[in-house]
Simulated assay, not measured.
Amino acid sequence: MTLKLLVLLLDLAGTFVFALSGATAAVRRRLDLFGVLVLAFVAANSGGILRDVLIGAVPPASIRDWRYLGVSVLAGLVTFRWAPSIERLKNPVRLFDAAGLAMFAVVGANKALEHGLEPPMAALLGMLSGIGGGIVRDVLLREVPLVLRAELYAVAALAGALVVVTGEWLAWPTTATMCGGALLCFGLRMAAIRRGWRLPVAPAGDAPRDDRPDARPRDPEA
């Protein structure tokens, strides 16, 4: 398998699972078919579009290549039709989100390196491309983005991206480092969910709280 084909497959696979996470969240909020498809596309492609715009790969692949739209719509339709079956999975939104995060983080870092970015910035861009879709999804659903309140979300994406850029610096095989980075990101994210690992949270202090029910951030896993 060529590196170009591997990157494309990881990108499309990440698009599909991120679309599943967006569509699942939309179904839980009782959106109609159009809303489910919009959330599927937004969650699946926002990070990739942001990545491509920042590295100058325009028009972005998600807009230029029909396969990204097709994969997103397919995931949305599958979720809309078989939502009860998908819900039987344990924490489906987080599971799909972790898989998409892992694939987008390593693909984003690899594409950034191909476009001449320095390794530290390539790692940050890999992280950003991984978390971008989830941020837009949560904002559209009027929720505090998962990346700002979840267990080791952006940190997991950064760890996976760092494996890719470190492998490039040490001249390791790119295919191996991308697969290793994706596995590290996914494993770290799932372990953090199961064990509750998270970054420190500042004490609330005496700041006034808004206790209205509609003012509290909603958890997509609730």
Rank of each mutant, 00 (worst) to 15 (best):
M1T: 05
L3P: 06
K4H: 08
K4A: 13
L5V: 12
V7D: 04
L9H: 05
L9F: 06
L10T: 01
L10F: 09
D11Y: 01
L12P: 09
L12M: 09
A13S: 15
A13R: 00
G14Q: 09
V17C: 04
A19M: 06
L20S: 13
A23Q: 02
A25H: 00
A26L: 05
V27M: 15
V27I: 06
R28C: 04
R29P: 10
L31A: 04
D32W: 15
F34T: 01
V36L: 07
L39K: 09
A40G: 03
A40W: 04
A40Y: 00
F41S: 01
A43L: 07
A44Q: 07
N45Q: 08
S46P: 03
G48T: 03
R51E: 00
D52F: 04
V53Y: 14
L54Q: 01
A57E: 01
A57G: 07
V58I: 13
P59N: 11
I63Q: 08
R64D: 12
W66A: 03
R67T: 11
R67K: 10
Y68W: 05
L69E: 10
V71Q: 07
S72M: 11
S72N: 10
L74G: 09
A75D: 08
G76M: 04
V78Q: 08
V78D: 02
T79M: 14
T79K: 07
T79L: 11
R81H: 06
A83N: 04
A83F: 14
A83Q: 14
R88G: 00
N91R: 08
N91H: 11
P92A: 02
F96I: 01
A99L: 14
L101Q: 09
A102W: 00
G108P: 11
A109G: 00
E114Y: 13
G116E: 05
L117A: 12
P120V: 05
M121A: 14
A122L: 02
A123G: 07
S129V: 09
G132H: 06
G133E: 06
G134D: 09
I135V: 07
R137P: 01
V139D: 11
V139W: 09
L140I: 12
L140Y: 11
L141K: 06
R142T: 15
R142M: 14
V144I: 15
P145C: 03
L148Y: 14
L148W: 15
R149L: 08
R149C: 10
E151L: 10
L152D: 02
Y153T: 10
Y153V: 12
V155Q: 10
V155E: 12
A157M: 09
L158M: 13
G160A: 12
A161F: 11
A161I: 12
V164S: 04
T166S: 03
T166A: 03
T166W: 15
G167H: 05
E168D: 12
P173G: 10
C179D: 05
C179Q: 12
A182N: 11
F186C: 02
F186H: 05
R189I: 01
M190D: 00
A191E: 02
A192H: 02
A192C: 02
R194N: 14
R198L: 08
R198I: 03
L199C: 05
L199N: 01
A202K: 13
A204W: 11
A204T: 13
A204P: 06
G205M: 06
A207L: 15
A207P: 05
A207G: 13
P208Y: 14
R209Q: 14
R209Y: 02
D214K: 09
A215T: 10
R216P: 01
R216T: 06
P217A: 08
D219R: 15
E221T: 12
E221Q: 15
